[in-house]
C-alpha cells in the first residue's frame, strides 16, 4: 500500500510538471493554432536562469525559501521575455502564411535556443542546488512523499486556480477565449489580437519557468537538452487531453504522469516511455480529439 501511494505521489508530481508545460502548448495552440516547438526551450531557459540567480544568492548566504522565491521570479521574468520575443521574431512575421511555415520556424527556434544555451553555458550537466528544504516534521512520510513533491503539488494547484480565475473572470481572459474561438470577430469587437497573442505567450512561458525551477530543484541537475525531452512529454500530455483545451492539458498531464509512474514502479523504468506513448496511441484511436477535446466539425 505504501509503495502504491509512493507511486501515486511520484506520478502526481510528474503530472504537475507536465501540466505546467503542457498549458503553454495548449494555450498557444488554442489562440493561433500553432504547436510552439520552442516551448520546451523556454522551460529550459527558466531552469538555467534560476540556477544562475540561485548560485549568486547562495553566495550571499540568503535563507533557502528566499533564494527559491527570488530565483523563481527571475526565471519567470526571463522566460516570459524569451517567450514574448520568440513570438515577435519567429511567428508574428508569418501570420497569415500557410500553417507549415510557422511550424518550421518553431522547430528552427527550438534548435537555435538549445544550441545557443549550449554555447553560452556548457554542453555538460550542471548541478542544481537544492532549493526546497526538507523539514524534520515531515520525516514520517518522507519515504512516500518528499517535501519537494508536496511543494510541486501545492505550487501547481495554486497556479492552476489562479490561471482558471484569470481566464474565466478577467477582461484579458475573456479576450483570450474570444480570440481562440473566433479571431475575426475578436478584431471586430475591438480586441487587439496581437496583444492577446503576446499575453498568451507570456503566461505560457511563465508557467513553463515555474515548472523548470521546480523540476530542476527536484532532479538536481540540468543541461541544455532538458527542454526537448520535457517538451515532448508535455506536448504528448496536451494532445492526450485534447490540444487547445486547458482542463484537457491538466488531465492529460496527470494521466501521463501516473501511467509513467506505475510503469516504472511495477514493470521497469526502461518501459515508462513505451507505456506513455502506447497510452497516447490508444486514446487517439478511440478519442481522436483527445480526452476533453472537441471533435471539430467543419461546416460547409
Amino acid at each position: 500500500m505504501e509503495y502504491f501511494l509512493e507511486l501515486v505521489f511520484s506520478g502526481l508530481t510528474r503530472g504537475s510538471i507536465y501540466a505546467l508545460i503542457a498549458l503553454g502548448y495548449t494555450m498557444v495552440y488554442g489562440i493561433i493554432g500553432l504547436i510552439n516547438f520552442a516551448h520546451g526551450e523556454i522551460y529550459m531557459i527558466g531552469a538555467f536562469t534560476a540556477l544562475i540567480i540561485a548560485t549568486v544568492l547562495n553566495m550571499y548566504g540568503l535563507p533557502l525559501p528566499a533564494v527559491l522565491i527570488l530565483a523563481a521570479i527571475a526565471a519567470i521574468v526571463w522566460s516570459a521575455a524569451y517567450g514574448f520575443t520568440v513570438e515577435r521574431v519567429a511567428y508574428r512575421p508569418l501570420r497569415g502564411a500557410p500553417r507549415l511555415s510557422p511550424l518550421i520556424s518553431a522547430i528552427g527556434m527550438s534548435i537555435f535556443l538549445q544550441n545557443y544555451v549550449m554555447l553560452a553555458q556548457t554542453p555538460n550537466f550542471l548541478p542544481f542546488p537544492t532549493l526546497i528544504p526538507e523539514p524534520a516534521f515531515l520525516e514520517p512520510i518522507a519515504s512516500m512523499v518528499g517535501t519537494t513533491d508536496l511543494t510541486i503539488l501545492l505550487v501547481t494547484t495554486v497556479v492552476m486556480v489562479l490561471l482558471t480565475l484569470l481566464i474565466k473572470f478577467t477582461r484579458t481572459g475573456k479576450a483570450m477565449r474570444a480570440t481562440s474561438q473566433d479571431r475575426t470577430m475578436a478584431f471586430l469587437v475591438g480586441v487587439n489580437v496581437d496583444t492577446v497573442i503576446s499575453i498568451t505567450f507570456v503566461i505560457g512561458s511563465s508557467l513553463a519557468a515555474i515548472g523548470g525551477v521546480l523540476i530542476a530543484s527536484h532532479i538536481g541537475q540540468i543541461n541544455f537538452y532538458i527542454g526537448f525531452i520535457a517538451g515532448i512529454k508535455a506536448f504528448t500530455a496536451a494532445v492526450l487531453g485534447g490540444i487547445g483545451s486547458i482542463p484537457g492539458a491538466v488531465l492529460g498531464s496527470f494521466v501521463l504522469g501516473l501511467t509513467e509512474s506505475f510503469a516504472t514502479g511495477y514493470v521497469s523504468s526502461a518501459y515508462e516511455d513505451v507505456f506513455a506513448f502506447s497510452l497516447l496511441v490508444l486514446i487517439l484511436i478511440f478519442r481522436p480529439a483527445g480526452l476533453l477535446g472537441k471533435a471539430s466539425i467543419e461546416k460547409v
Binding site: 477582461r171 475573456k174 479576450a175 477565449r177 474570444a178 474561438q181 473566433d182 475575426t184 470577430m185 475578436a186 471586430l188 469587437v189 475591438g190 480586441v191
Partner: peptide, 18 residues
C-alpha cells in the same frame, strides 16, 4: 460569428470590450 463557447452575457460583454 457568435463566440460559441462564451455565454450570451459574455458575448455581450465582448461587445462592450473597449
Amino acid at each position: 460569428h457568435i463566440f460559441p463557447a462564451l455565454s450570451v452575457a459574455e458575448n455581450l460583454d465582448m461587445g462592450a470590450f473597449l
